[in-house]
Design a protein around this nucleic acid. Structure first.
Lengths: 233, 233
DNA sequence: ATTTAAATATGATATAAGTCATAAAACTTT
DNA sequence: AAAGTTTTATGACTTATATCATATTTAAAT
């Protein structure tokens, strides 16, 4: 399933990725250095503890990053999607992966060798800047979650999660905003650090209140303002 | 209290900072571009929501980064010390500060204008790499904390906090490892997202068990292996 | 199509940790 | 040195949320 026939020039995530500011010539170099790959739902890109050989650039799809506790309980530390890069943290600090990356839907990814990316960062300042920018955004999101955990209860964090999912995966729909992401309740619970049953109960409560609706397996935010009020922002 | 008489070449944090790989010539440029400043305990470097004009490089001391909830409750999202840089996230993503930075002890800091640092990142790849490396480390720490909340109880998180403080501020001592950082119990509680009383109770429990001791205001880790066992690592 | 397994849902119960109250230390300020 | 303020410390009580148990629904496998 590996090929090099794809061109970065026509990549669907071109506008968002770390190579978005490159000239055509430099982009050609990236095109030839990368390896294209498709991961099915449930497949892992890399495992916690293993050494990084390069960078993963998400073209299209969604990846969860998880850490496993001693008791085996997994917790989701980040969700990455189109244009996001994985592995930069490990590569630049020369440490093993601190989390496991798993596709939660079919995802197309480009892999770029670590040596190539190191050279790229030296030669193309915009690439370095974009990596800094993305890492910064992830750090901001991560610290938001820490504060959220300290300051908000499950009801507020659930509302917040739905709003965040809306920003990254929300589509317009007759009844409101349809969340085009198929996370299990267990995964949603893990993101906001609560028990699966507690999250399910909270979603049921939101349904009763008419804040959200369900169509098949997909959730729809029916009243986004009310949800924002609950999340407290 | 502002001066330019300090040279980066003789900075106590030179080995750890983002400019550590620069040649003397380039370092001279940094020396003349920076503004040196001292913050007393409790003074703020910048406030959540305000725009960033540059980068803060910590020469010596400790800074807490806090976020304030609607209810006014502050939570500590990061602790930064010698060699750490603040403001990179905001500068590169061109957003306002997402947290407030306050000195928790007397801290000496160099301020570097945003335009200068942007130029530096373009011209000196090692600076960009070091920023990436530091951001990556912060992101890793932050995600560790998220997993920690999800997977550990207050007892375990308290043990973990003491171990982390030991790594950054621990000094050898007759009774074990002395933590050379003066955080209030409220601040310690905030770091691990628990109530002040709960943290105090946990420390009392550790004292009873003989895992930690107290000398004046400072804590001493008497049995680091046992503490590591409790933290689960 | 039928069986098996996994995910969702809800009730009942337990408990870790939060909140409130109060007091004693430990610093600050006058 | 005395008064005031903040921090540390414990006890008593409450509550949000985890855990356990058990259906029900949905998806996967045979």
């Amino acid at each position: 399933m590996k090929t090099n026939s794809h061109k970065c020039q026509t990549c669907p995530s071109k506008g968002e990725g770390i190579f978005c500011d490159l000239e055509n010539q430099a982009l050609d170099k990236v095109s030839s250095a990368k390896v294209f790959n498709t991961y099915k739902k449930g497949q892992t890109l890399f495992m916690e503890g293993s050494p990084p050989y390069g960078l993963f650039c998400i073209q299209e799809g969604t990846i969860k990053l998880t850490k496993t506790g001693e008791d085996g309980k997994e917790s989701i530390v980040r969700i990455a999607c189109n244009g996001d890069v994985l592995g930069h943290r490990s590569i630049f600090s020369d440490t093993n992966f601190q989390a496991t990356a798993t596709a939660i839907e079919e995802t197309t990814v480009c892999f770029i060798d670590r040596k190539f990316i190191m050279r790229m960062v030296s030669e193309e300042p915009t690439v370095a800047q974009n990596i800094i920018c993305q890492l910064g955004k992830s750090l901001g999101d991560s610290e938001d979650r820490i504060a959220s955990f300290a300051q908000k209860n499950v009801r507020e964090r659930t509302a917040e999660l739905l709003l965040i999912l809306n920003e990254s995966h929300g589509k317009d729909h007759a009844l409101g905003r349809l969340l085009e992401i198929k996370l299990t309740r267990e995964e949603m619970a893990s993101i906001i650090s609560t028990a699966t049953e507690t999250l399910i109960r909270q979603l049921s409560e939101f349904k009763e209140e008419g804040v959200i609706k369900q169509e098949g397996k997909k959730l729809i935010i029916a009243n986004i303002d009310q949800l924002a009020g609950i999340a407290g922002r």
